[in-house]
């Protein structure tokens, strides 16, 4: 139930994001969600796209350092305390979240949260057991 996330190394330079989004746009790749982790000197752009393999190849070809990482995307109720419920489950089991970011899904769905977790399999099992909705790669590309 893991989803592939595309990560790109970025120096903090003007115009780099424009370039990346342009490359993906030209290949008709749709970005579902994105987040940037930054330090004073560099950043990591993380994206969930509809066609990860194609995005990976397009960026690599253009000379970017790209990697694919498996992340877990969960759906939480779009209301106060929605995310807290999921975090509580993870916290109780001592599961460490490396990072997370959220995006709002189309009408009719809750909020979607991307989680980077070391023990993916165990976490997915645990969340499913607790009736948390986990999205598959197919579902993401259909969004």
């Amino acid at each position: 139930m893991a989803v592939r996330q595309i990560s790109v190394f970025l120096e903090n330079k003007i115009g780099r994001l424009a370039e990346i989004t342009q490359i993906l746009g030209n290949k008709e790749i749709n970005i579902r969600a994105l987040a940037i982790a930054d330090t004073t000197e560099f950043g990591i752009l993380r994206m969930i796209v509809d066609r990860p393999q194609k995005a990976y190849e397009a960026l690599e070809e253009r000379g970017f350092t790209v990697s694919q990482t498996e992340v877990v995307v969960v759906e939480v109720e779009d209301k106060p305390g929605g995310l807290a419920q999921v975090m509580a489950i993870l916290g109780k089991e001592g599961i460490n979240v490396e990072y997370l970011y959220a995006f709002v899904a189309p009408r009719g769905r809750g909020a979607l949260v991307v989680l980077k977790i070391e023990e993916k399999k165990a976490t997915v099992d645990l969340l499913q057991e607790k009736k948390v909705k986990i999205l598959s790669a197919e579902e993401i590309s259909r969004l």
Binding site: F9, A37, F42, I44, R46, T65, V66, S67, E98, K116
Partner: peptide, 16 residues
């Protein structure tokens, strides 16, 4: 140093 697939990780901590 230019990053390469060998020396690129998705986490800031590991890059640092």
């Amino acid at each position: 140093l230019e990053t390469s697939p060998h020396i690129f990780f998705d986490e800031v901590r590991r890059l640092e």
